[in-house]
Design a protein around this nucleic acid. Sequence first.
DNA 1: CGTCTTTGACCAGCGC
DNA 2: GCGCTGGTCAAAGACG
Length: 580
Amino acid sequence: METKPERHRHDHVHEEGGEDAATMAHGALSLHHRGAALFGHQRHDEELVAAGRRGEIREVDFFSRDSGARRQQDDGRGGRRVPGGGRDDVNIGLDLLTTATAAAASAGDEEVTAAKNHKMEASAVEAELRRVVDENRRLRGILEELTRNYGTLYQQLLQVTQHHPHQHHHPDLMNNRSSLLPHHTHLNAMGAPTTSTTRQLLEARASSTAQTQPDAGAEDEASDGAGEASPSLSNNAGNNDSDGKRKMSQDGAPPPPRENGEQAASSAELPGRKARVSVRARSEAPMISDGCQWRKYGQKMAKGNPCPRAYYRCTMAVACPVRKQVQRCAEDKSILVTTYEGHHNHPLPPAATTMANTTSAAAAMLLSGPATSRDGAAALLGHHHTAAALFHHHASIPYASTMATLSASAPFPTITLDLTQAPAAGGGLLAHGLQRPPVGMIHPAAAAGPAMPFAVPPPLAMFLPQRAPAAAAMPAGLVARQQQQSVMETVTAAIAADPNFTTALAAAISSVMAGGGAHQGQPAATPRGSNIGVAGEATIGGGEGAAPAAPTTTAAGAHAASGSPRFATQSCTTSTTRGN
DNA sequence: CGTCTTTGACCAGCGC
DNA sequence: GCGCTGGTCAAAGACG
């Protein structure tokens, strides 16, 4: 994932270039401006200099198709070509100058004035260009850093979970966070020691991604690794979940006895139950999209809630033990609560892996939290307010303005991500219905974590390591970092929203820029951005693929991803009243 | 006709 | 031991 952004960014630029070329006949200045901005002004400047040095007075036809070729010749003579740029048509200053000069030479004073105006205009454009270029660089830097941080955290996660499959904790790893930051991680799960389970998963994926490019492979691996973020948890894949008390007629393998040493090894684990990951999100849709395929196998009325609870099972693999429950919040029926349990034992589709990646990472972080500081965890467990205050530090951050509540009363270790308070920002978050990033509601007691089939915005993950200690005092520098985190959230969310990284990147950048108050107004930057832009509704029909026309549905995209149109009609809204 | 949803029944855990 | 509740099964029906 580390390298992919680079590649895609490049691709993206290329696309932009094509667009510019196609439309340049209608407005050479602004369009070139855009292209050049993406490529940096170096070449532009050099050409300006070169032009002045040559002193050539040539008439350049902006509207001529071969103008690009001509410039190409110029480049061959002195101009430096941008490697791989492929943007021969991107040339602003030089042509502008020559054009102006030519005009001045061939006409009278009147035209000289016009030429001056042109120069001034060119200067203005140039200034604007540089501004944009600078901003572009700045954003790129931010993106790179965020990506790097993400990678580092993910790697740490792998280390934590893989080095200690039987004891979820390793303070050192978490504390070493800073020391790892400088690394330009490639999120290659293979690079880290793997448990048999993890390896198995990775290998399984390897076959499925064999055809993909190395970069893509790396991303996938990372995603997968994250998807099975916690080996100690993943190891339970086969025996996972609730089936401890049930036979797994479909999953085939009956759950191993829980009295295995693994259980005994961790007193923190709750016997007979796995941790769960719960997501609260506003959505009119019956189900939020997580990129996976689900099959409903039951529905029941739950105590204290007039809305029925639906039970789903992952059907992406025959033996996938992952299950989830979907239920509307009793207090606010617009809030959909989705609870996941278990670990996927199969490769996830891009739409799901990306999400699973970040989400699982966060989950693992959470789950390994107690390792970082049991005391801290205990404190969190015991003091809801402390936790709330902790998360409150994010209030100033766009997507982190959530509140956290911890509850030790839940029957199972549960991580609750509250996405109901995030604003439906233009950047969009976990698309397909998840309108906002998380809040974290943690049950540190969680000893085993479920493989979250969706993503937890990185901010949370990044935040977690500091959770316990931070409960006392938030590092000052952290606040600044949070800014980056929010950006990262946006980026990750965009990725989650759309597997097409190029699009996601564009969307993220657009989002960031928009956030800066200077939205360059490029809706075109997000071709499929409907997923990303306005979270929720925007996904209607815009998702990856043809989202079945699900009436109101923020989660329509999910259905598309899941390939099960019927999801759109199933329901939590089916107010059946069966008690049982 | 195959797939998926619906829904009544069944089972297990837990509290009283 | 009994009842409640959560969770799952599986037959029946719906849908494409």
